[in-house]
């Protein structure tokens, strides 16, 4: 079930007597995306433990970010958040990490701070999220990942994106072996097949 209101899937699961899979509820959560993200991270890094994860872009409304953060917080992840001021990670997720005793840093700009990343998770910045359209025009080009920015990054580093992208990953990154977002999307097919067969009891 995909629904624009937040909490709609949880409510549906409480009143329905059949299984409900949350396929995205407003800006809240997107757990099936997270399962494919976890699969993609483990496949490329060989582990989910002790990784340095950078989440970049719209961290306020980006539901995939919220679900991924909660899932990865079980694996001693170090988080780095890079976003414009207006789209910073909401406090409830920072409280969640503090409760778990996990470290995180917040930045406004993408700089060579990405050089110690194991995973860079990009999200798109949407025009409608800004109260001031001029602010959007100023911001949209500051959160673009380009190929030459990846020179100093780690060999094992992979770039993920829930797709579709707007302009936040330049097309010259697509050929870089550190880009993984198209394979990540393919992993989504397998992961969702697994979810559907599991709720139908097919082995």
């Amino acid at each position: 079930m995909r629904h624009p209101l937040e909490g709609s899937a949880r409510f549906a699961s409480e009143v329905a007597d059949i299984p409900v899979v949350n396929a995205g509820d407003g800006a809240n959560q997107h757990p099936t995306q997270t399962l494919l993200d976890l699969y993609s991270i483990r496949k490329t890094q060989g582990t989910l433990e002790n990784l340095n994860v950078f989440l970049i872009g719209d961290l306020k409304y980006g539901r995939t970010v919220h679900s991924l953060l909660m899932a990865m917080s079980n694996f001693n992840t170090t988080f780095n958040f890079i976003s414009p001021e207006e789209l910073k990670l909401p406090d409830e997720y920072k409280m969640y990490l503090q409760d778990k005793g996990l470290e995180y840093e917040e930045h406004i700009d993408i700089t060579d701070n990405i050089n110690n990343a194991d995973i860079i998770y990009m999200t798109r910045i949407q025009r409608e999220r800004f109260s001031d359209p001029m602010e959007y025009e100023k911001t949209k080009n500051s959160y673009v990942l380009k190929n030459d920015m990846l020179d100093g990054t780690k060999e094992n580093m992979k770039i993920l994106h829930p797709l579709p992208r707007v302009n936040e990953i330049h097309e010259d990154v697509d050929e870089n072996k550190k880009s993984y977002y198209f394979t990540q999307a393919l992993n989504g097919v397998y992961t969702r097949m697994a979810i559907i067969t599991s709720i139908l009891g097919i082995k």
């Binding site: 937040e6 909490g7 409510f11 509820d25 959560q29 909401p90 409830e92 409280m95």
Partner: peptide, 25 residues
């Protein structure tokens, strides 16, 4: 839908209410 909140400590004096449904504070 009836609201349900979980009460979380914010600091020594204050609490925050986390919504059971949308998870916002």
């Amino acid at each position: 839908v009836n609201t349900i909140f979980y009460v979380l400590p914010k600091d020594s004096e204050k609490v925050a209410l986390k919504c059971h449904y949308c998870e916002k504070i």
